[in-house]
Design a protein around this nucleic acid. Structure first.
Lengths: 205, 205
DNA sequence: ATGATGTTTAACCGAAAAGTTAAACTTTTC
DNA sequence: GAAAAGTTTAACTTTTCGGTTAAACATCAT
């Protein structure tokens, strides 16, 4: 190995950028090669085909996005703390890779089976465990009756959607890039509060 | 007109299906033609180019999705009622066209300007008006201090994300199509409640 | 009927993009 | 230092896909 697979690294970085931004169908191998300052043939030397290169990028993307979810929510800490930790790590990764959630969601939509295969390393999210934690809080009078799936959907919705729909929201609201970014930053502190509000027993106002 | 533009209707339906599922880049004119049981030349006879056909589909999609948002939120009713109405109409349209939100979000991401042009019939969302309504509730002691943009993001997040990420959530949770659908149905009643919980003044528990 | 207009088709074209080849160059190994 | 293995390139081939053409077919007014 001459260049100590620095080339491979550059390819993956470039491919990431292009695939994240344009999706599989919109991505061009030439652009990826250009981004890595190599030519197309070398690209095919390292990764036989567009399909394979994409698989590498997609797996890495899922790997980057999903484990925090599983790990934080699977731990044995109090639920409110899990929420905070999840939002924090999620915002960290996504502020660094703003197109990541949209990319994964879109490609999953395009081809659900690929994802199943990528993720099906045995470990699905432990919904039952989450439900148990929720029920326990309910019986202690701390939480209202809450379905685990709905809880999870709320957490992900409030965290992910503003990134996925960033462009749309900017257009709809006439907010600039910078202003919108600030709005997103603020949510890091707000989402956990909202999630807890949603969990609290209903106050009959 | 011999067939009373039934052909055009079939084309648009087919194009909708293909574009919604694969996006602009992933869609093939041949597939759209096949779906409408005609051949490619006839497709180009009705819609000069892929671009134009896409524009027709995209405009219709935006038209289907956005006005409810603007209208309900722009009305003069109490905010909590606006929320209920919005969620209700939103769920009606989206349960009928589950791929609509994902499609719009993705294509907007691909080309933000097109959307600006499609929607820029002068009417952007009246964020100031929404903020005024929120502030008024705050001063009456009914709501906590709330930023209009955050409010809007929450409403859309909780409503739209579960549809956009349907495939991903199903894979992650091992829920079947039908079960997930039921979960979504339940949210129609739940989202307004949550939105109100998030608005209420903070209870210092 | 017939010609004008509108509709539909099969066959073709050209550009773009994925993928291949063969040769040159570099590095490693013995 | 020479052969082997690994790396890089320019030029080429193939495939895919959007778009066109010209001719056949249908419909309808006069």
């Amino acid at each position: 190995m001459a260049t100590e697979n620095e080339t491979e690294y550059r390819i993956l970085r470039s491919a990431e950028e292009v695939f994240y931004r344009h999706g599989y169908d919109g991505a061009k191998m030439q652009d990826i090669a250009d981004g890595a300052s190599i030519n197309k043939a070398l690209l095919h030397y390292y990764f036989r085909s567009k399909e394979r290169l994409f698989d590498a990028v997609f797996s890495a993307a899922v790997e980057r996005l999903v484990p925090p979810l599983f790990l934080t929510l699977g731990s044995e800490k109090p639920l409110t703390q899990k929420i905070r930790e999840f939002v924090d790590t999620y915002f960290d990764t996504v502020l660094e890779h703003p197109f990541l959630p949209g990319f994964v969601v879109h490609e999953m939509h395009r081809n659900p089976d690929r994802f199943r295969k990528t993720i099906a390393s045995g470990n699905l999210l432990d919904l039952e465990g989450l439900q148990a934690a929720l029920d326990e809080g309910t019986s202690r009078g701390e939480f209202r009756q809450t379905d685990a799936m709905q809880f999870l959907l709320n957490l992900l919705s409030l965290s992910a959607f503003p990134f996925i729909a960033a462009r749309a929201m900017q257009a709809i609201s006439a907010l600039g890039e910078e202003e919108y970014r600030r709005t997103l930053d603020e949510r890091r502190a707000l989402v956990p509060v909202w999630m807890e509000d949603i969990l609290k027993p209903c106050t009959l106002s």
